[in-house]
Computed example of a mutant assay.
Amino acid sequence: MPSDKSTPAKKAAAKKAGAASKKASAKKAAAVKKAPAAKKVTVAPKKATARVKGTAPAKAVVHPPGDESRTALVRRARRINRELAEVYPYAHPELDFDNSFQLVVATVLSAQTTDLRVNQTTPALFAKYPTPEDLAAANPEEVEEILRPCGFFRAKTKSVIGLSKALVEDFGGEVPGWLEDLVKLPGVGRKTAFVVLGNAFGRPGITVDTHFQRLVRRWQWTGETDPDKIEAAIGALFPKSDWTDLSHHVIWHGRRICHARKPACGACPIAPLCPAFGEGETDPEKAKKLLKYEKGGFPGQRLRPPQAYLDAGGKPAPPLGAG
C-alpha cells in the first residue's frame, strides 16, 4: 500500500522536473537565437563601401567621413592619385616659362585669370624685360599696358615690379629656392611659392588653387576651407615626394572633367571612388560633351606632350632645376 501512495508523488515530482527542464531549454534556445541578430546590427563594412561609391553630396559630409576610417581614406586618396597619373601622364604647369624668374612672374599674373591668357601676355613682357633687373627699372605705365589683358593690371604691375626689385636688392637677381624667402616677395604667397619650388627647383610642394580646393572637398579628403589647413591635411595623406605631381594631377582633372558647375561625372575615370558622383552629368554621352580639351591633351590621351615640353631628344623635359 505505501508504494501506491508514493507513486502519485513521484509522478508529480517528475512532471515538475520535466517542466523546469523544458523552461531552461527554451531560455537557452532564445538566448542562442538572439546572439546572431545582435551581430548583424554591428556590421559596418557594407556601409562604408556604399558611402565611397554612393551619391551623397560632398557638402553634407565633414572630414573625416564618419563611416570611413583614416586608413581607408589614405588608401582611397592614393588610389585616386594613381588613377589620375594614368590619365594625365604628362601633367605639368600650364604656364609657359623658360626659367625660374619667368615662372614666378607668370604665376603671380595667373591670379584671377586663365593660364591661357597669361601665356598670351607674357611673351611681350619677357621680350621687353627679360631679367629681374630690367623689370625692376621698368616704367609702370608701360608694364600696365602690356598686362592689361590679364585683369587687375595695376595691382599686378606693382607686384611684378616689386618682386623684381626685391630679387635684385635681396637675392642678387636670382629667384631663391626656399619657401621662407619666396613668400617675402611682393605678390608671392604659399601657392605661388610651391609652384616655383616644385617646378623650377624640384622641391615638393602642394599647390592649393581653386581647382585643388574644390576637388579635395568633393572627394572628402578634407572638409577644411582655409588653404593653409587644406595644404596640411592633404600633405598628411601622401608621401612628400608625391606632392608636386599630385597637385598637377588634381588641377588638370579640375580643368578638364571635374568642373565647378557641371562636372562630367559620366566621363570621369575615378567615378567609382568619388563620394560626390552624381553632382554632375552621369550619362556618358552627355558627359563627354562637357570635357574641356586644353593644352597638353585631354582625358585618356597618352600621346606626347606639346613640343615646348620636350627635350632635345624628344623626351619629356624634367622640371627646371631638377637633376
Rank of each mutant, 00 (worst) to 15 (best):
K59S: 12
T49D: 15
S6H: 14
A276R: 00
A271I: 10
A264P: 00
I270D: 02
N119L: 09
G187V: 00
A17E: 08
H249R: 11
E83F: 09
N119E: 06
A24V: 09
A24E: 15
A322T: 11
F152K: 07
V43D: 15
T225S: 12
K262T: 13
R148T: 04
T114W: 00
A85C: 12
S100A: 15
D283Y: 07
F298V: 09
K240G: 10
V216A: 02
K10C: 09
P123M: 10
G254D: 09
K59T: 07
G297K: 00
A14H: 08
L303Q: 11
A260G: 10
P45S: 14
K59R: 11
T107P: 04
K240S: 14
T225N: 12
Y129S: 04
V62Y: 11
K15E: 14
W243K: 01
R79G: 14
A308V: 13
L109K: 02
P93S: 13
A38E: 14
A24D: 14
V188K: 02
R75I: 14
E279W: 09
E86Q: 10
F97V: 05
P272D: 05
N99H: 06
C265T: 05
L246H: 03
A20M: 12
R302C: 08
C265A: 09
F97Y: 10
S21Q: 13
R78Y: 12
V61R: 05
Q112Y: 12
A13D: 14
K53E: 15
L103E: 02
A58R: 03
V208Y: 00
I230E: 03
